[in-house]
Nucleic acid binder design. Structure first.
Lengths: 156, 156
DNA sequence: ATACATTTAATGTAGTAACATGTATTTATC
DNA sequence: GATAAATACATGTTACTACATTAAATGTAT
């Protein structure tokens, strides 16, 4: 269904406004889809995001600031997200020896286990996109999204 | 900058996972960009979304449920969003004569005025995308986003 | 060495969102 | 026409986010 039908707006002032609105709408739509899976595992989308980043680090520790940057998030929120992961036993936090202001965060085996339990459902959903989008189109979209973030007048 | 560089993740399990993550990331990125403009006008992104829908209705009233559907939002939150618009004088709420459970919402002249003040900046930002994306590419992206929302296994 | 600025993370506060529930009204079934 | 189910909206609760501030550690200039 086209974005025009979904939000019942017939006209847009430009292809760029339509894209901008469609991007936000589709991202929200995806968020709601994922929410259902996340709820089953008693984790939020943001908490999952942190865990995924931690897994990408393998056993290497990562600092709160670094996590926040990759998430486009504020340090303060990331701190509290990690609190939740700690309580649930999915992550560990140790003071960084070389810089005692910093905090080293690593994923625990329990955290890795959780992610591996969630992987199949997410992978299946992602691959379900192949019924409507070719791998080439997916790559094309990714590169166009990358381009969007490079527009000249980045500032509103 | 590619999504790989931005989130410092080198490998994805498929073009579809990369697209999925890139979509969320870019939408968040866009949200932060827009946040700055919204703050200047003492309005939130969600409140703006409602106002934009109301303007699209011209002088025709619209029900809370209908607004919530177009926003992919919950009724309860939309109720409170409209509360905020009321307080600021940007919208009006009247009991619907034909169905007294329902509430008719319309935008006020002040609301229209606010939107018209915000339009130029948003339009300028949107058109700034033309430095990196052609109108044809923007339309292509929109239609691919539409397709994404139609994938077979919609449910996780 | 000392003063001052910067960096890193955490916390207090207010606003916002998700979810469940409550209330009033309408629609459907008997 | 009475009762049950569905609909439209509002509200209470809990958790999350943005922002400002704080606290501690580090960097830098004199």
């Amino acid at each position: 269904m086209s974005i025009e039908t979904d939000i019942k707006q017939k006209k847009f002032r430009s292809p760029y406004q339509r894209l901008s609105i469609n991007l936000t709408y589709t991202s929200n739509w995806l968020g709601y889809k994922q929410l259902e899976l996340f709820k089953e595992h008693d984790i939020t989308s943001q908490q999952y995001n942190v865990l995924r980043i931690l897994r990408g680090q393998q056993s290497n520790a990562i600092k709160v600031t670094e996590i926040a940057e990759r998430m486009l998030d504020k340090n303060s929120n990331t701190s509290r997200l990690i609190d939740k992961l700690l309580v649930k036993g999915w992550a560990e936090r140790t003071s960084c020896p070389s810089d005692r202001r910093a905090v080293d965060v690593v994923i625990t085996p329990a955290g890795l286990d959780l992610l591996s339990k969630m992987d199949p459902a997410l992978e299946e959903w992602e691959n379900g996109l192949s019924s409507v989008i070719t791998p080439e189109e997916a790559d094309l979209m990714s590169s166009l999204l990358d381009k969007m973030r490079e527009a000249e007048n980045n500032n509103l």
